[in-house]
């Protein structure tokens, strides 16, 4: 018994390290100079970070990424939670059709919507703006679907109790449904945030101005920066990558405790 537990722990550790190793390796690599990397030695240096921030404007990209991913997450959650509440709780004409269409959007690859979205934003003059980066991403069929399923699992009697207490529908949503759905909403938020944080294609298409670049665009640009002799400056790329993943890791630890927790317990018998 004890032995088996130890074996399981060891296995989990090995698996964890295996998954983590590319990340650890790239962080390690980011702390050396390009010269020593290509010579095969190790020479500690923080220079890559300095270069990324000063020469390649990564601080700006970081801020842009936070603004874009943050807004996409917040607005996207607001939209999909409200939609999910409506789908889960209200009887209205065409509800099931609308929900079907919402779910069907999950089956459309994003590349198909790329050009229509581009043309739409070009027409309304939103290319090269934050709004142009944010707006197309806020409607999220999967989030609406996922949250609807979760809300359907919350006893309707709680809504009804709130209505009897004098609540309006949006108060029921905000004061009863949202707090109870917190684990689902946080999970969905993390999912949306990561998806947007790693989004490359849309910012590439929608943005030309360098000061609207997100981290992913900035990263891609680094591949064309040569330390000489046609080589890529990998340690610089790794430093920039570390800048890219650290906020995400930090954010994850921040919301992690909200993610999975059954708090409906005790609501109804």
């Amino acid at each position: 018994m004890k032995l088996r537990q130890n074996a399981t722990t060891a296995l989990a550790l090995v698996a964890g390290l295996l998954f983590l190793s590319p990340v650890l390796y790239s962080i390690w690599m980011s702390f050396q100079t390009a010269q020593s990397y290509y010579r095969g030695g190790f020479e500690f240096s923080l220079g890559n970070y300095g270069t990324a921030v000063t020469k390649f404007n990564f601080a700006r990209y970081l801020v842009n990424s936070i603004i874009v991913s943050g807004m996409v997450t917040l607005v996207g959650l607001a939209v999909s939670t409200t939609a999910a509440f409506a789908f889960a709780r209200f009887d209205f004409k065409g509800r099931d059709l609308l929900f079907g269409i919402t779910v069907a959007t999950l089956m459309i690859p994003s590349h198909i919507t790329l050009i229509p979205n581009y043309l739409t934003l070009a027409r309304v003059g939103l290319l090269d703006t934050y709004a142009g980066l944010i707006l197309p991403a806020i409607s999220n069929g999967f989030a609406a679907f996922f949250l609807r399923q979760y809300i359907r699992g919350i006893p309707r009697a709680l809504d009804e109790a709130a209505y009897m207490d004098g609540a309006r529908p949006l108060q029921v949503l905000w004061r009863v449904i949202v707090p109870i759905s917190r684990p689902a909403i946080f999970s969905m938020g993390l999912y949306i945030f990561l998806g947007e944080w790693n989004n490359y294609i849309w910012p590439l298409v929608a943005v030309g101005k360098e000061d609207l670049y997100t981290l992913q665009l900035g990263l891609a640009r680094l591949y064309s920066v040569n330390p000489g002799e046609g080589l890529i400056d990998w340690p610089l790329v790794m430093a920039a990558s570390t800048i890219t993943i650290l906020p995400v890791l930090f954010g994850f630890f921040l919301v992690e405790r909200h993610l999975v927790r059954g708090i409906t317990m005790g609501a109804v018998k």
Binding site: E160, A161, A162, M164, G166, A167, G266
Partner: peptide, 18 residues
Amino acid sequence: PQDRDIAMIFQNYALYPH
């Protein structure tokens, strides 16, 4: 219901768990 000013006690209580 919110405009009827009626109080209701549900069979399963329906207390707000949070």
